[in-house]
Design a protein around this nucleic acid. Structure first.
Lengths: 357, 357
DNA sequence: ATGAAAGCGCTAACAG
DNA sequence: CTGTTAGCGCTTTCAT
């Protein structure tokens, strides 16, 4: 059936020798329209706004689609309508588990409405962000979701100039490019310090990935700990260890071992990820240090395994699913001409109190 | 500068009232060409095959690009050239850590050559695979990377009909749609059984996610175990527990506890993922069961944490990075008209012998 | 080495 | 409700 159609179309056009191309040979809307006995635009309407055509036409077009195996060319559609139904997401790396939940729910929420996700990895060193941005803008996506705040002024300018709706996530700023779904890393640092203080910790420490957001959590944590007297008086900060992002179990183990060497008396560690915390738990177990009796451990992320570790991990929970869903909704609202009410959201965080601290 | 240009272009066309659209207002190749004093096609050549134009022209075009902030519209380019520079990847879910390494390296390898990844989630129940396929084919990607073998005959047919290069991964089949980068799940089951046998295990069990590939690993493992006498003679299979995919630490803990209730004498567990294995390790520790002395544990995936657990996890290693890189290369070779030598690859696996078994 | 013409496959705008 | 026309922004084909 398909072959026959293709041939018929080819015959139609082959006789006149002209310039231009002869296309890819795949079934087009024109073929469908011809088979259904209507104009291409009518076939287009039957597919995109079925209620705008008569039932008879709808039937015949749908039948023609079925018989030809027609799949709309969204490149062409996107070019004509300036609606690509593509959304780009930028994450430091998909290899870290931290953003999985967000990416998952984003993909899901978009797919439900016929949008597709394009994934870009910026790396933690922001080296490729520049080239990535061109690759993204060039596809004219209906929206861009960034992990974190875009810091480079040039990047901000280019995104702004492109006119593409942008959602920055996982952070707060007074001057977002456009929309924002995030939370305060500073407040997290403070909240964790206060929580550990309540639990009676006297000498806290931290292990952090070397990315901007983790460092800011640490700084706030360190300041608050100082203020609460959970560190050597007059020190510049608490004992801490910085590791390469993305963080791993291995660096958590090594981090604890180093911290203990320099500061054997610490009684709590705040880790910038649950993976690091798992490393700390592992090392503590290997060293025979009881958690939380001798050492309290707090993670960040509330990854799926945190709840079921032994001891169960106390950690900071970020609702990654909410981030993904909100970002998706913001962008689809914009793309479809609806206005976004309250486009700057602080979704907060919570400390999940479990056994490790 | 940009505004001035846009205005100039607008003036050109505003006078004659005509049908059609007035575009998006963003800078086009025409604008660049006009500013550089050349024809659009020449500007196009300057950007896409710089060696085909004179140095002077090249210079002026590049300058015009810089001054206007022009970003090529790849939708238009793709439509005209039938090269979208987009590659689609389908994974069951991005939330499971198993495919991260592959997706990461795939994204990376593609980006290096100006290709972009589109991500689709099929879910483990393959429910949405159908709609997803249309969404993918509709974008006319230069290639599709599937996780696992496409089982639905209809899906195979549609992909084949689309003419898009396809790489199936993470499995083997005698009849791939097109290209293939995988390994044998049956052989893994057998190899793990033999390994545990060598280590002196007498009564093995398994905990598996309910996805097809895990089940096949289990079946082969179970058969081999029977053959090697590591189970009750004349039994249909070994003790096993099936859990929902994606697998979690929690289901690993629960799995072990159930297995021990029914079969207290087991001395080894093969888990269909490292996450499950971590759960088994955790539960064993909570129960005071020494690993590997009383219970050997083998995982699957060699996730980043496996090496550094305590005890270090013996597991099956799949080179996810190689899968991603090979898939990327296959597709780019095809897209750029090079032929792919040996487009069906078994990349094998290895058992990483560590402390847990 | 450069350019003019002709489309790629689709939809917005306008007209019946 | 349906059709005609004119593009979307780019590249292929053919000609110079």
């Amino acid at each position: 059936m398909v072959e026959k159609l293709n041939k018929a179309v080819a015959d139609d056009t082959a006789e006149v020798k002209r310039r231009g191309r002869r296309g890819t040979g795949s079934v087009t809307l024109r073929d469908v329209a011809k088979l259904a006995g209507v104009a291409p635009i009518t076939a287009s309407r039957a597919l995109n706004s079925p209620s705008a055509v008569s039932p008879l036409v709808l039937e015949r077009v749908q039948d023609a689609v079925r018989r030809t195996g027609y799949v709309p060319n969204m490149l062409a559609g996107g070019l004509a309508s300036s609606k690509s139904r593509l959304v780009a997401a930028v994450v430091p790396t998909i290899a870290g588990p931290v953003f999985q939940e967000s990416v998952h729910s984003l993909t899901e929420a978009l797919a439900e409405h016929g949008y597709q996700l394009m994934l870009g990895q910026s790396g933690y060193r922001n080296s490729r962000e520049d080239a990535l941005l061109d690759a993204i803008i060039g596809r004219r996506p209906d929206g861009v979701v960034l992990t974190g705040i875009m810091r480079s002024a040039d990047g901000r300018r280019r995104l702004l100039a492109s006119g593409i709706p942008v959602v920055e996530t996982w952070d707060l700023t007074a001057t977002p490019i456009d929309m924002l779904v995030g939370f305060s890393h500073e407040n997290i640092g403070i909240a964790v310090a206060e929580y550990l203080h309540e639990r009676g910790c006297k000498q806290v420490a931290s292990i952090n990935g070397n990315d901007d957001r983790a460092v800011r959590r640490h700084n706030a944590f360190s300041q608050a700990a100082l203020r609460l007297g959970m560190a050597v008086p007059d020190a510049a900060g608490i004992p801490s260890h910085v590791v390469q992002a993305p963080t791993t179990l291995a660096s958590g183990r090594e981090g604890l071992s180093r911290l203990l060497k320099d500061s054997p008396d610490i009684d709590a560690v705040f880790c910038s990820s649950d993976m690091l915390a798992l490393g700390v738990l592992t090392e503590a177990q290997a060293l025979g240090i009881p958690v939380p009796q001798q050492l309290a451990v707090c993670g960040f992320g509330d990854l799926s395994f945190a709840r079921d570790l032994h001891p169960a991990l106390t950690t900071v929970r970020i609702d990654g699913t909410a981030i993904g869903q909100l970002a998706a909704r913001f962008i689809m609202d914009r793309a479809e001409g609806r206005s976004v009410e309250q486009p700057i959201r602080d979704i907060g965080f919570s400390i999940v109190r479990r056994d490790s601290a």
